[in-house]
């Protein structure tokens, strides 16, 4: 269910109003940036992904008909992240120096260990990207498990089982590091 305000913003965006675009960015940039940052652990990459996301959202806003806008926007966010991962993998194949460091895009984040959030980030980085994404989709979006499963094109049982596994892993990693 969408709030009246959000409905107005989306209607404005469909009409091409710059003020509506601006409001949409204000509404979602914080939450989605956090989602990207926890996924990649890198501020610059998160900034780029956030820009790309909004450009795609604005380009496709007329295709959004009804249903949950959060679900729609997080589906695009998830696609943007997966495109980024694919691109990264391609680059790694081309450049062998990346091969040994599978999580090379986390490098800059590891210099900020004093930050407590960074500590969590480091543990998040240790679980695989797919599992990490489910955890973050659950905690940064307001999506139900059914919606998350739809975004990921998988049965709800699969989503639950992946989340269960990654939560156990995360808890154990945080427990070990204390």
């Amino acid at each position: 269910m969408m709030s009246r305000d959000l409905e107005k913003i989306i209607a404005g965006c469909k009409k091409g109003q710059n003020s509506a675009y601006s409001e949409l960015v204000d509404c979602y940039s914080q939450k989605i940036y956090a989602y990207f940052y926890r996924l990649t652990g890198n501020r610059d990459i998160s900034n780029d992904l956030l820009s790309e996301l909004f450009l795609k959202v604005i380009k496709n806003i007329k295709k959004f008909k009804d249903g949950s806008f959060d679900s729609w926007i997080y589906k695009i966010a998830s696609n943007v992240f997966h495109d980024f991962l694919r691109e990264k993998q391609k680059q790694r194949k081309i450049n062998s120096e990346y091969a040994e460091n599978a999580e090379s895009f986390y490098l800059d984040s590891q210099h900020e260990k004093a930050d407590m959030g960074q500590h969590l980030q480091n543990q998040l980085n240790k679980i695989d990207a797919e599992e990490r994404e489910i955890v973050l989709l659950r905690f940064y979006s307001d999506l139900s498990f059914k919606e998350i499963a739809e975004i990921r094109n998988e049965p709800i049982g699969t989503t639950l089982s992946k989340l269960h596994r990654s939560l156990k892993k995360l808890r154990s990693l945080i427990g070990q590091s204390k």
């Binding site: 204000d26 940039s29 914080q30 940036y33 956090a34 956030l50 820009s51 450009l55 930050d115 959030g117």
Partner: peptide
């Protein structure tokens, strides 16, 4: 409990500029 990572004002303004 952890500090929420947030984009800088500059990044937000840049996105808005690009969209506009």
């Amino acid at each position: 409990a952890t500090r929420e990572p947030a984009p800088s004002r500059e990044v937000i303004e840049n996105i808005k500029r690009r969209i506009s």
